[in-house]
């Protein structure tokens, strides 16, 4: 224990939190996005492999899914990026008031999206047990819904947290910023899935 040391620098002035790739949280979120992103990509590949065995897609006499709910969902989730960007900026500026205003809005949007999602399942025009086509579109939609659901839950918990004494702390602001980053992934991942579920069967 008495190894002699050569002291080269004192680190006391370093900050105790940072945003973006300087923080561990950011890396955690990025890594989870990579895992889930490869999951989505592989599900997409499975979709095309299953499609290649079918003469028509969807297999006759099935109809492609109805467009209304899915498109509405897509528009809303795209629009949600506006408050999402703002809350991310405000969190990084460490301003508590706008964060406390916007997070509930994000949570509300998430809830609304879940409601629309229920109608999406209803408009698929196929059951998962019918055939591989039904199985894979249900799988894609369920997979994405779990992401909406977990992120919505995260957002609700974080919202509550921001209203407590733990709210206006550096680490919490980092959390809010990374939560927004993750939300971007959720909607970005949706766009190709939207095409696979609603448009590929129409081509």
């Amino acid at each position: 224990m008495s190894a002699p040391y050569r002291f080269t620098r004192d680190l006391a002035e370093l900050p105790t939190h940072a945003f973006g790739n300087r923080s561990l949280t950011w890396w955690g979120v990025i890594l989870f996005m990579l895992m889930e992103g490869s999951g989505f990509a592989l599900a997409g590949a499975a979709y095309f492999i299953l499609k290649s065995h079918q003469g028509t897609w969807p297999p006759a006499p099935l109809q492609p899914p109805g467009l209304l709910a899915g498109t509405l969902f897509t528009l809303l989730i795209l629009a949600s990026e506006i408050p999402n960007t703002i809350v991310k900026k405000k969190a990084e500026a460490e301003e508590i008031a706008p964060v406390r205003l916007l997070l509930p809005i994000m949570a509300a949007i998430g809830g609304l999206l879940l409601v629309i999602r229920a109608f999406e399942f209803d408009s698929l025009n196929v059951m998962w047990t019918d055939n591989p086509y039904g199985s894979i579109v249900w799988a894609l939609l369920v997979l994405h819904t779990t992401h909406i659901l977990t992120d919505w839950f995260d957002t609700v918990v974080l919202t509550v947290l921001m209203f407590t004494q733990h709210g206006p702390t550096g680490k919490r602001f980092v959390d809010v910023s990374e939560n927004s980053l993750y939300w971007r992934f959720v909607w970005l991942a949706w766009l190709p899935i939207y095409l696979l579920i609603y448009w590929v069967p129409r081509w």
Partner: peptide
């Protein structure tokens, strides 16, 4: 996929229904 084929009746791998 395997679990869902087995438990909730999806058809991913079932050749009889066009699965692969």
């Amino acid at each position: 996929f395997l679990i869902s084929d087995r438990l909730v009746g999806t058809q991913f791998f079932n050749p009889a229904e066009g699965g692969d």
